[in-house]
């Protein structure tokens, strides 16, 4: 029997929607558990390779562990817990939020925006005046 694949466990937990912190910790705890099982068997006189094989068998399969974890809704990310919200309401909320954000930011920073606007208007008037003066000088100078 192959040794238990903890990386595969971690990946498959993430794939079925388990929260990343929970998946990482589950894989780490299973690794510690495996080491404890190996220690228990080697302390009982089993050779290292036999102990590791037995410990892997005692843990079961990755698929079984993933199925046990994924059966618990509270361990999943919110997207998997509320798929309707994720598919429907989240994009709708984004559609509203994206155009609304600059407007809200503008209202929140109105004095700064007003100062910038006034500066731009003043710069525009000054440039236009200079250009007009130059044009008049060319025409009548």
């Amino acid at each position: 029997m192959r040794e238990f694949d903890f990386d595969a466990l971690h990946e498959q937990l993430l794939e079925c929607g388990i929260r990343p912190d929970c998946a990482r910790r589950a894989a780490s705890e299973m690794r510690d558990h495996f080491d404890d099982l190996v220690d228990e068997r080697t302390a009982g006189g089993a050779p290292e390779d036999v102990a590791r094989r037995d410990a892997a068998a005692a843990l079961g399969t990755v698929e079984h562990l993933v199925a046990s974890m994924s059966g618990r809704r509270e361990l999943k990310t919110w997207i998997y817990r509320y798929p309707l919200a994720a598919i429907l309401f989240y994009p709708l909320a984004c559609l509203v939020a994206i155009p609304a954000t600059p407007v809200i930011a503008g209202i929140a920073n109105a004095p700064v925006l007003a100062r910038w606007s006034m500066s731009l208007v003043a710069a525009g008037v000054l440039t236009a005046t200079l250009l007009l003066t130059l044009q008049l000088l060319i025409l009548f100078g």
């Binding site: 929970c22 589950a26 079961g60 618990r72 509270e74």
Partner: peptide, 16 residues
Amino acid sequence: LGEGVIYPVLHGLERN
């Protein structure tokens, strides 16, 4: 209790 049972239950109890 197998390992496939104990850790999901522990994590669930911690979560709630």
